[in-house]
Computed example of a mutant assay.
Amino acid sequence: MTTLLIADDQTMVREALAALLGMEPDFEVIAQCARGDEVLPAVRHRSPEVALLDVDMPGLDGLEVAALLAEEFPQVRVVIVTTYGRPGWVKRALDAGVSGFMVKDAPVDRLAEGIRRVMAGLQVIDPELVVESTVHGRSPLTERETEVLRAAADGGSVGEIASALFISSGTVRNRLSAGIGKTAARNRADAVRIARDNGWL
């Protein structure tokens, strides 16, 4: 029996997945989470073998959770299950050590088979997403530029971003300018939107 944790902030989707996967004879859903920051405590408490994570969740996103699980619970296999697969997300997921990346519009039997393959030690990534990620998914931003754009997403001033990241206002302006140029954006907000749409943040 393979034990599962499902994390998704959409209650109906999470409960439907739990019900459908719970009907499989070799699966048992032992934990559900509505927020990314609930996952690690739940893993500590319930010890699932597989964690199914949505990407867009409050608290922490699924890719951040995957990276944390890889550090603290490397034995837990992680499968990203999301509504859509932005190309940049696949690279981030692979960097975080996930075992699978699947989209929610796949039939449940394909998801179930993917989980079984993951439990057999295989990696299961939607092949179309791998192609998209290879062609379109590499971020043009440096790690520092990404950090500044991520901080800028909250709408803070240059001074507030500088204070939060412990760098100078001039450095923030330079990195914002570079980020805007590399994403071919009109302004800071547009650069954040483009980077998010590509899964680079």
Rank of each mutant, 00 (worst) to 15 (best):
W200Y: 13
I194A: 11
E15R: 12
T3L: 05
M119W: 05
A34D: 13
L21V: 14
D154K: 15
A96C: 10
V103W: 00
A67F: 04
E147Q: 14
L52I: 15
F27L: 08
V108D: 01
P87F: 03
S157C: 07
D61I: 00
D197P: 02
A19F: 14
R193Q: 09
K182L: 12
E72S: 13
L129V: 07
L149W: 05
V148A: 02
D26T: 14
I194K: 13
D54I: 12
R117L: 09
G59A: 11
A16K: 11
R175H: 14
V172D: 01
E28V: 08
D56M: 14
A93N: 03
M1G: 11
V29W: 00
V65K: 02
P25S: 13
L40D: 03
D61F: 04
S168M: 10
W89K: 10
I30L: 01
L4H: 03
K104V: 04
V192T: 02
M57W: 09
G121Y: 07
V103N: 03
L129D: 06
E24K: 12
M57S: 06
F166S: 15
S157F: 07
R110N: 08
A96D: 11
E71M: 10
V43H: 00
E71Y: 08
E49F: 07
A106R: 12
A18L: 10
L122V: 10
L52Q: 09
A189Y: 12
A164Y: 02
G170R: 09
V130F: 04
R175I: 01
L5S: 06
P140L: 08
V135P: 00
G156L: 11
V79P: 00
T142C: 07
M23Y: 06
E128A: 14
A191F: 04
V124Y: 00
D197E: 15
N187T: 05
A18K: 03
A16N: 13
F73R: 03
F27R: 01
S133D: 05
V192E: 01
G114Q: 09
A67N: 05
A120M: 10
D9E: 11
T83L: 15
D37L: 03
P48W: 02
T146E: 09
T3W: 01
L5M: 11
A106D: 04
T146L: 07
F101P: 02
K91L: 15
R86Q: 15
R14A: 09
M102W: 00
R175D: 06
S47L: 09
L21G: 06
E72P: 07
L149S: 03
E24H: 15
L69Y: 02
M119Y: 04
S168Y: 08
M57G: 00
A152R: 00
V192L: 07
Q75T: 09
S163V: 04
L63S: 02
A67L: 11
E145G: 03
V39Q: 06
A189G: 07
E132Y: 11
E143Y: 07
L176I: 05
E132Q: 15
G156R: 12
V158C: 06
V81D: 00
M119P: 00
A153I: 04
L122P: 01
A51I: 01
T2M: 08
V55P: 01
A189C: 04
V50T: 09
V55A: 07
D61C: 02
G88Q: 02
G88W: 01
